[in-house]
């Protein structure tokens, strides 16, 4: 049945109105027994036998509506629809309304499978590519799992603005783990790269400790509650991240603590800065100081000479 005909001429992107001409024998073919699933007007098209769906201005102005409903529209495509047309529509949509969020893509994938009659492996190549997702059947599975997250989790995930790569990672987790970590990410508002790091550490820790993410998150809660009440959000988030890093890299933390202890004993004057090699992997410390007069320089050099005589330095050298 060749009843969807979409070409560039059929799409009207002007003035926040979205029109899609469908060559339908009758409107019911599109919607079947169901109601129109979104506020669209269906009217006779210009060509004989065609119908035009018009999405009105007010509807599209609600950002949380437009992509979901668009997804519904796409999913009404019959099995026989040419995949390229769908891709074209997805592309057109992207140009008009910006990229789809990952959750929206997840709903799209699920609807394509469940309503559109696509088999998951049919979506694994071109479709995923068009949606800017890593190709392959495992991505389809992850998207299906994301789309089946319980309803309260979905808006939280959307508000948390989770890094799409992280969200895909979370899709592999049991729902109870996702329910623990998603609100945690929402609360701390880390940048995308920090989210990636934090989630990675939490997952590793859960494996190392043989526990679940809820326990790791609960442990972080305790760290948070020990912070002074006036601690600002970003500092709280950083304190939690550092706590996680220390749990994940205990030997490094030990070296860091020893280093800090040495540094305290050395009592460096404030104008002299000592820097350890990154991750204690190199073998050299660096000292930096600034001065703006001969007197300041003399003072710094004296401090350095005193420093060089301290026995505590040996402990510092043992660390690298």
């Amino acid at each position: 049945m060749q009843w969807i005909t979409v070409s560039s001429r059929d799409l009207d992107w002007s003035d926040r109105r979205f029109c899609l001409s469908l060559n339908l024998p009758r409107p019911e073919v599109l919607f079947g027994e169901e109601d129109v699933p979104f506020p669209a007007i269906l009217r006779p098209g210009l060509r004989p036998g065609s119908w035009t769906m018009v999405f009105g201005h007010s509807h599209w102005s609600h950002p949380e509506n437009h992509s979901r409903e668009w997804i519904s529209a796409l999913c009404l495509m019959p099995e026989e629809a040419d995949e390229r047309k769908c891709l074209y529509l997805a592309y057109g949509f992207r140009r008009r309304f910006g990229p789809l969020a990952l959750m929206e893509k997840a709903f799209l994938v699920r609807r394509l499978c469940e309503t559109g009659g696509y088999r998951p492996e049919e979506l694994a190549g071109t479709w995923l590519k068009a949606l800017e997702l890593p190709p392959g059947p495992t991505t389809v599975e992850k998207m299906m799992r994301l789309a089946s997250w319980p309803e309260p989790l979905v808006p939280i995930a959307e508000q948390a603005e989770i890094n799409p790569a992280v969200l895909l990672q979370l899709a592999e987790l049991p729902c109870s783990d996702a329910e623990a970590i998603v609100p945690f990410l929402q609360r701390h508002r880390w940048s995308h790269s920090r989210q990636k790091e934090v989630v990675r550490i939490c997952l590793d820790l859960a494996k190392i400790q043989g526990t679940c993410l809820a326990d790791i998150v609960a442990d972080c809660r305790q760290v948070e509650s020990a912070l002074p009440g006036e601690t600002a959000g970003p500092e709280r988030a950083e304190a939690v991240r550092i706590h996680l890093l220390r749990l994940r890299y205990p030997r490094r933390r030990e070296a860091e603590e020893q280093y800090e202890a040495c540094r305290r004993k050395l009592r460096l004057p404030p104008e002299i800065r000592l820097a350890e090699p990154p991750d204690f992997d190199g073998e050299k410390y660096r000292i930096q100081f600034s001065f703006r007069s001969r007197r300041e320089l003399d003072r710094a050099v004296e401090s350095l000479a005193r420093l060089a005589r301290q026995e505590e330095l040996d402990n510092l050298f043992r660390l690298v």
Partner: peptide, 8 residues
């Protein structure tokens, strides 16, 4: 799961 860190 090892304590892996980036080197120089």
């Amino acid at each position: 799961l090892g304590e892996l860190l980036p080197g120089v």
